[in-house]
Design a protein around this nucleic acid. Sequence first.
DNA 1: GGTTACATGTAACTAGTTACATGATTAG
DNA 2: CTAATCATGTAACTAGTTACATGTAACC
Lengths: 196, 196
Amino acid sequence: MLELAILGLLKDQPMHGYRLKKSLETLGAAWQPSFGSLYPALRRLEKTGAVEKVVVEERRSRKTRRGSDKPDRTRRRKVYRITDSGESAFRDLLEGEQGAHEERAFSLKLAFCRYMPPEDRLGLLERRRAHLTERLAQFRSQMKQSMRETKERMDTYTLSLMRHGLDSTESDIRWLDDLIAAERTSGQLSKKGDRS
Amino acid sequence: MLELAILGLLKDQPMHGYRLKKSLETLGAAWQPSFGSLYPALRRLEKTGAVEKVVVEERRSRKTRRGSDKPDRTRRRKVYRITDSGESAFRDLLEGEQGAHEERAFSLKLAFCRYMPPEDRLGLLERRRAHLTERLAQFRSQMKQSMRETKERMDTYTLSLMRHGLDSTESDIRWLDDLIAAERTSGQLSKKGDRS
DNA sequence: GGTTACATGTAACTAGTTACATGATTAG
DNA sequence: CTAATCATGTAACTAGTTACATGTAACC
């Protein structure tokens, strides 16, 4: 999850950890990893060779040169760049089935799906659609079931929660349908010569 | 999270672990804890005195009495009941701030909010509303910002994701507004004599 | 000269998951 | 008699979190 996000952002441009976190917040929203997971993740990625340091910026350019006593103990910002091996790790994470039914994973993958081949992109959207459709069916059968049984009566709040969940899921499916349709159309177009 | 769910279900009626999991699935949906977390959680709750065993059911009622060689090694089902101390632990979990901004935590709390005093119930709904409103504002300011900058242009997918997230959040807020309004109305009514 | 934002990191903890192991009961 | 479902449990792992520690740079 985090590693996918990091690699995806670094594909765009080299960055240091702090900036990475800011960018992450701007991304899909609804998820801000903490520094406590971000920095260790960067280390892991560096150790496995998926990213590498580009610069360790020389700070203290103008002022603050009071003697230069303890010369190197400072924590400078470390800018990382994605490597070739990182690019392929990114592809694996993006196309893999990790957290296939998690909201966050899907959002993140969608945010980076411009890097996918069109057919995989369609696959991602359709798997998500199938999953939501299944959930919808479960929702409905459960509501019917609890309607029938006078015992085990659902209270107003649970009922409202389920109804809203149902509506939201339907809305999600409609949204996906739009994306899928757009995807197919652009696929059609590129067959007629729009390749690039 | 899990402990809140377990205690909430046991308030309704004593149950054994396996049945607890089935009930959990029926509940808010969108979350099925695994047995690997459920059984340890039950143990924890028993150790702290929040729940207690009611029965360890005698199985092998009719058939299967071939000698009764190894008499007690069997894994029977253990039915648990919530204790007084468990009831108070439940209240603490329900009214506490754990995972205040998590979807799952909110859904779970709403599913059990019939056990809350009306003013806390209103508080829960309003805190959620405030949180979603804040997210909405962030969403909007981010979209505007990335519209302005020609650099760092958002791709279609991220844009669509954000727009849909915005719509969904707005819909959630409308739903909450309905719940809040209903809550206030029923509060009004009970002042005029409808108490119970 | 003090506050705020930038910047990197570690240790201890949380809240789960998957995979495995065991065995009983029920239905075809 | 065999497969599915019921039922309980453990061990190893995953993917984060919070709280802390440290220090720099910018600003007002």
